[in-house]
């Protein structure tokens, strides 16, 4: 069954989109992440204009982070003060991201910007996670798990000025590095159609030593607020949000995520981190292939403007 996307101005198969939404939702439920980093590239590979893919995917992330954010709120697993500080930084990044997105679109270099950003971000993050997960695996075989937190040990960036106390997370850290990381994630999220949970969660966990039971909920809270802003800004600045596509992605994602969350109970934590690292690295490499391999067709078309341009 085909369905017309009014903003993308193209027809897609309803079952393909619902199926993709469910598959990505399953993976996101399995790993407890948003899944935007898989969905946006898949939409682009399906032929949906990159601008529409990125902008519309933010709506799906809003829905999925609302669901998991509410669940975390019920379990009282959110540090609202820490979340608020992160959101403040994240919103600045989001605004910058949407602005750069619109500028690149006007210059006709948006596709390239998206591909290059995916390649760098995903290969770097994927390799780091893979290295970490292999090291962890080797150490656990030797039988001595690494201590998560040693007394009196603090990296220098936590001691920068503007220190703030976060009682819920048992933290006393400078807000500058928090703002920095939140800003970067807001920026990348708006530009790439991702929530950024797969970067924010490990960053809060390893760099700031936020307790494990609080980290996911707090990150979902930050992602909900920044993608909400990204969605509205994309709608205003780029007019690329397709409501029909968004509804299909949300519905597919909701069902997939339920099954994924159930399946995750049977997955060991170290295997889980290893698979996630492979997945992220895989997406990065898939985009790298695009850049490195000689394309079959050297020319590409893009419609710069509807209507003929007045030539001076």
């Amino acid at each position: 069954m085909s369905i017309y996307l009014p903003v993308a101005e193209m027809t897609v198969s309803l079952f393909t989109i619902l199926g993709l939404g469910a598959a990505v939702g399953f993976i996101s439920g399995l790993f407890g992440i948003g899944g935007g980093f898989l969905m946006t590239p898949l939409l682009i590979f399906l032929g949906i204009p990159p601008a529409v893919a990125v902008a519309t995917q933010t709506a799906q992330i809003v829905a999925s982070s609302t669901t998991s954010g509410l669940a975390a709120l019920r379990r009282r697993a959110i540090d609202l003060k820490l979340g608020g500080v992160l959101v403040a930084g994240g919103l600045v990044g989001t605004a910058l991201g949407v602005w750069l997105f619109a500028a690149a679109r006007r210059a006709g270099q948006l596709d390239l910007l998206i591909v290059v950003s995916y390649v760098t971000l995903f290969t770097v993050v994927g390799s780091l996670m893979l290295r970490e997960s292999i090291r962890e695996f080797l150490q656990s075989r030797k039988g001595k798990p690494r201590p998560r937190r040693r007394a009196g040990e603090h990296p220098a960036y936590l001691g920068l000025p503007l220190r703030m106390r976060f009682p819920r997370s048992k933290l006393y850290v400078s807000v500058i590095p928090l703002w920095g990381i939140a800003m970067f994630i807001g920026f990348a999220g708006a530009m790439l159609g991702i929530g950024g949970g797969f970067i924010l969660v490990p960053a809060l966990l390893y760099m700031f030593k936020v307790p494990t039971n609080i980290v996911v909920g707090t990150s979902q809270f930050q992602i909900l607020c920044t993608t909400l802003a990204a969605l509205v800004l994309h709608a205003v600045a780029n007019q690329a949000v397709d409501l029909v596509l968004a509804l299909m992605l949300i519905v597919g994602g909701v069902f997939g995520a339920q099954f994924g969350a159930r399946a995750s109970a049977n997955l060991r934590a170290d295997v889980f981190r290893f698979l996630l690292a492979l997945l992220i690295l895989g997406v990065g490499l898939r985009f790298a292939v695009e850049l490195v391999v000689q394309p079959d067709e050297l020319f590409s078309l893009s419609i710069t403007q509807v209507g003929a341009e007045a030539v001076e």
Binding site: A59, T67, L228, V232, A235, V236, I250, A257
Partner: peptide, 21 residues
């Protein structure tokens, strides 16, 4: 009315997310 549209889409997404939860 892109602002209305954006806010409407955001509202729909939040509502569906809440419904799922």
């Amino acid at each position: 009315q892109s602002l209305v549209y954006g806010l409407g889409t955001a509202g729909t997404a939040i509502f569906l997310g809440w419904l799922a939860s």
